[in-house]
Amino acid sequence: MRSFWPIYKRELFAFFVTPLAWVLIVAFLVVQGMHFFIVIDHLARQVDIASDETPVRAFFGNTVLLYLVLFMLVPPMTMRSFAEERRSGTIETLMSGPVSTAAVVLAKYAAVLTTYVVMWLPTVLYLLILARTGALDGPAAAGAYLGVLLVGAGYLAIGTCASALARSQFVAMIWTAFALLVLFLIGMGEFVTREGTTFHDVAVHVSVWGHMNDFASGIVDSRHLVFYGTLIVLPLFIATRAVDAWRWG
């Protein structure tokens, strides 16, 4: 695992030295800024606000904007990880060093996850603004950020896996977007299936939408934690095997 840090640092360097990271961060913050404005403006116009509707809930839960942004951001963030190294051949020099495959996968994943966290950091300002103008629901905010972190971590793991499997960056991007969308749509099945059926249960269990609504209300369900744990570990494991398969193929 000693090789983790050099690769992690190089990945972050590569990400922030190219315009891609900055373009993505700016796009993300513009959309989130507009989103925040809409939420606040909407709530401010309500004469009679339902007691359980707070800005934090409205910003993180029950909104499709959050997922739209993630669908757009995650695929370009992760597409390069392995596909680019394979295209340029640098994977060969990388793997000829004294590095373990697991360290390479984890370092690349940790780098995109760090970038993701950096993207979200400025949005903490919104909470500070809310806290200045009224009571901020602390637990809900903490839950919401935990949810954002877990959903992002799961999505980025899927993207990293796609990059390890795909032949090119473009294919990795398409596969990632496709996988995230399918996962989201299965979750949406909650609303179109009858309660009590197996599909309904499955849909509820994997519903990112439902999870985020809970997190944004400050509810941290251990089933959700297990689900995201799986969503992170499984793709990363497959990615490790895929990189190994390339070596032994």
Partner: peptide
């Protein structure tokens, strides 16, 4: 090891690249 195509990270400076490789090679 030097592969035939000499793959390098294009966005890095030479000295940065070699420091990274030295770090990687412990």
């Amino acid at each position: 090891y030097m592969p035939e195509a000499v793959p390098l990270y294009p966005e890095m400076r030479v000295v940065e690249y070699l420091r990274f490789r030295a770090d990687l090679k412990q």
